[in-house]
Write a protein that binds this DNA or RNA. Structure first.
Length: 796
RNA sequence: GGGUGAGUGGCGGAACGGUAUACGCGAUAGUCUCAAAAACUAUUGGCCGCAAGGUCUUGAGAGUUCGAAUCUCUCCUCGCCCACCA
């Protein structure tokens, strides 16, 4: 643009109108619809599906908009990008909220979905809603039931009885992951222990296959993506976390025979088995401890023992874990240490867990701190061990991972497709009768029995086997069951023969990148991997891992640095900010404010800076348009060419690697170069590059500007990503830092053509007065030269 | 207790063996204005100095290196996840 003394702006930047306009146009054109027939390489861009809580909050914006920028970048790079979304619509929170407000959970949920879908529109993502999945609709949960029945057939789903975490207010069983500090994650009430019969998934059968290999280059099950034969790229944090959670430990089962069988009130057990990972310390075992729930403990008729057991059972598991002071009683029984040959006493104590190993341990106070603490408290002997014992025993493997309890005594979930017949037992609902629909008119308030059990009409049915009277299973499935496979359903959301079209899934999956929160490291993503391995076993898919790459985002805290919560009053409402600044500004700020994986507070002031930036971009282009339009590449400005190429490279690499913040910073630097030198000519190509680089982040303003600059062109989001050429990256003169003994003393500009020749560089640098001053009278011992960057003189 | 990530200006952060503090926010001064806001311009890690310049600085301390925010060790602090797992 030629010299213009006064900046005249023809039109001002009003994000509201622009965003509404383009949102509508894109929708009309079906811009975001995935094209299955395309020959371009596919790219499945997945974000964890949101829970329909009522309103989109800032966390949703933070999860979705950088992911959208990545997807848009991929699309501009020639990929056929699949970016679907849906709603995780079943579950307790909906039910609780519905009870509180007196609305039916379904109505409440569907209203929220409608509302949130509208809010999603303002976000300007390229989500293809034609593949939407809503998990509370029979179209989806019927396939939950199908999968459940397959698992039942294979023995993966089974009915078991277990001491479970029970929330007395929500009237439901809770998974360990849903207890926070001994309290229910939803309602905050104290969790108690209760024996409950329920459905389990035998995830422990898959424990070994779910373990991530230590070395990513080896070739066992799980670490290679069989479809592409490329290593699966998940953060170490997740891999380590899951491996620890699975907690495989190899050890030995040792048998200790009871010495004084028969005495002590007719004790009738021959031996006690213990699990140990350190059989080499067996000679140091000076006593045995069994958990209060252990059968041996129950055999003991001594009054102090039975009283101790009673006391221990009153406590919840959580209370036991919180109270770390050791307690226990002597049972009067002795066993023989197979290595030392000594008779050692058997105690009952609640620091031993019934659910791990055999529920009994050999205590080696010399080697184990907990055992030592116990021994000290009760004056039991501590004997040194030389770690050389080799007792005989059965080698075994124990896992920390337990089978996944999927039963919920609640209304708002997938009905378990099983019929309880007095004659035939557990009878699966025939596949052709699926889905077992969740009845609408049910009293879903908590009663201590599953709400579905109160609907007699629904409950009573015929046994498919004997045609006799039978009852449906009144429980519903954990919603983590839904989220374990929803991303398969996205591919073919209306497929009627199977949970998903296996052909299409083979083409589109595995997922290329899966964005989500780190809170799902141990629950959701582990279940999703488990389901994928099950699908492989029943021949539905050909790969082991459902997602090639996992990217976990951090958390946006309130402006005060605390987690946003209504009670703190520090919740930032994205709708209000969008109203004030427009979605592009919010998107830009969320991408720019911090690294995607970081956790940092929202800043009410800093977002203004993003708005200002877009405003300045808008103005610059308005000015450019209002002056004589410069023909393409007229008056080539070499400095601009260099910085343009450098910026294209940087922004592309950053978007590829999810470094959204530095990508935007690079665009700002590029922009500043122009706005600081308004007297210099800017070519159309340079303006277009600015718009194209910004397009993934700020889709609305860039679309508007693109059409102003290129009136007859297609959408900016259908344009190819600009290319760069390495040969333009180098400056004609490069500043080389000069160090004397490692301290920076000067920088000298060296001609590009001379950079490779160290002698010439040294010669140039020694011309500098400053350098001369430091070298005067010194002997140069060594010179280290890093081409184009730094030269270090080591002097005496 | 175990695992894992992180400590850099007033703030969010950049650089991750080669010119520390990019980019943004905030702050200060100026231009414009009756005035204010906005916008624009300049300055903005500390200390010494009128200046040129010097000097110190990436939680603390040591080490490796020509050169360390970056690698190694010890310690301190914080976040997240798990937690009496034998």
């Amino acid at each position: 643009m030629s010299k213009n003394s006064k900046i005249k702006i023809n039109s001002r930047y009003f994000p509201g109108a622009i965003e509404k306009k383009w949102s509508k146009k894109w929708q009309e054109k079906g811009m975001n619809e995935f094209d299955f027939s395309s020959k371009k390489p596919k790219y499945y861009n997945l974000v964890e599906l949101p829970y329909p809580s009522g309103d989109l909050h800032l966390g949703h914006w933070f999860a979705f908009t950088p992911a959208d920028a990545h997807a848009r970048y991929k699309k501009m790079n020639g990929f056929n990008v699949f970016f679907p979304n849906g709603f995780d619509a079943f579950g307790l929170p909906a039910e609780n909220a519905a009870i509180k407000r007196g609305i039916h959970p379904k109505d409440w949920t569907m209203q929220n979905i409608q509302n949130m879908t509208k809010q999603f529109e303002t976000m300007g993502t390229m989500i293809d809603w034609s593949h939407e999945v809503i998990t509370c609709l029979p179209d989806f949960y019927g396939w939950n039931q199908w999968i459940f029945l397959k698992m039942f057939e294979k023995g993966i789903a089974y009915r078991g009885k277990a001491l479970s975490n029970w929330c007395p207010v929500d009237q439901t069983v809770l998974a360990n992951e849903h207890i926070e500090g001994g309290k229910c994650w939803r309602c905050g009430s104290e969790v108690i222990q209760k024996e409950v019969e329920q459905w389990f998934l035998r995830i422990t059968d898959y424990a070994d296959r779910l373990i991530w290999p230590e070395d990513n280059s080896s070739k066992s099950d799980g670490e290679k993506d069989t479809a592409s034969n490329e290593p699966v790229d998940w953060p170490d944090q997740v891999k380590e976390g899951q491996n620890n959670w699975i907690g495989k430990s190899e050890g030995m089962l040792l048998e200790f025979s009871v010495i004084n069988k028969g005495d002590n009130n007719g004790l009738n057990i021959d031996s006690i088995k213990v699990f140990t990972t350190r059989p080499d310390t067996t000679d140091g075992a000076t006593f045995l401890v069994v958990a209060p729930e252990h059968p041996f403990a129950r055999e003991i008729k001594q009054k102090d023992v039975s009283e101790y057991i009673k006391e221990a059972q009153k406590k919840t598991e959580m209370e036991r874990k919180e109270d770390r002071t050791k307690s226990g009683v002597f049972t009067g029984a002795y066993v023989k240490n197979p290595v030392s040959g000594k008779d050692i006493p058997v105690w009952v104590a609640d620091y031993v867990l019934a659910g791990y190993g055999t529920g009994a341990i050999m205590a080696v106070p010399f080697a184990d701190e907990r055992d030592r603490e116990f021994a000290r408290k009760f004056n039991l002997p501590i004997e040194e061990t030389d770690f050389k014992a080799k007792p005989e025993g059965e080698k075994t493997v124990n896992y920390h991972l337990r089978d996944w309890s999927i039963s919920r005594q609640r209304y708002w979930g997938t009905p378990v497709p099983i019929i309880h017949c007095e004659k035939c037992g557990l009878v699966p609902v025939p596949y052709e009768d699926l889905p077992v629909e969740l009845p609408y008119n049910v009293d879903y308030t908590p009663k201590g029995k599953p709400p579905l059990a109160t609907d007699e009409e629904w409950l009573n049915t015929k046994c498919p086997k004997c045609q006799g009277a039978a009852k449906r299973d009144a429980e519903t499935l954990d919603t983590f069951f839904d989220s374990a496979w929803y991303y398969y359903r996205y591919v073919s959301p209306h497929f009627e023969k199977l949970p998903f079209d296996t052909k299409e899934v083979a083409e589109l999956m595995p997922v290329d990148v899966y964005f989500g929160g780190s809170e799902h490291t141990l629950g959701h993503t582990l279940y999703a991997r488990f389901f994928t391995k099950f699908f492989k076993d029943i021949g539905l898919v050909g790969f082991d891992e459902f997602a090639r790459k996992r990217v976990q985002h951090g958390v946006i805290l309130g402006p005060d640095g605390n987690r946003m919560s209504k009670s703190r009053g520090n919740v930032v409402n994205p709708d209000e900010i969008v109203k004030e600044y427009g979605a592009d500004t919010v998107r830009l700020y969320l991408c720019f404010m911090m690294p995607y994986e970081a956790t940092a507070p929202w800043s009410t002031e800093a977002i203004g800076g993003m708005y200002k930036f877009l405003w300045r971009v808008w103005n610059l282009i308005q000015v450019w348009l209002s002056t004589d339009r410069i023909q393409d590449n007229a008056d080539i400005n070499h400095e601009y060419i260099r910085i343009k190429n450098r910026t294209i490279k940087k922004v592309g690499e950053d978007l590829e690697n999810f470094h959204f913040n530095t990508a935007i910073s690079a665009i700002m630097i590029y922009f500043n170069e122009f706005s600081k030198n308004l007297e210099k000519t800017i070519s159309k190509d340079e303006i277009n590059t600015l718009i194209l680089l910004l397009a993934p982040f700020a889709p609305f303003i860039t679309e508007e500007l693109w059409h102003l600059v290129n009136p007859n062109a297609k959408s900016v989001h259908l344009q190819p990503w600009p290319g760069y050429d390495e040969k333009y990256l180098l400056e004609e003169e490069v500043p080389v830092a000069v160090q004397i003994n490692g301290k920076l003393r000067d920088t000298v500009r060296i001609r590009n053509s001379e950079l490779k020749i160290q002698n010439k560089v040294e010669e140039e640098i020694k011309k500098s007065e400053k350098v001369q001053k430091y070298l005067e009278g010194k002997k140069i011992l060594k010179v280290i030269y890093v081409e184009g960057k730094i030269i270090n003189f080591v002097v005496s």
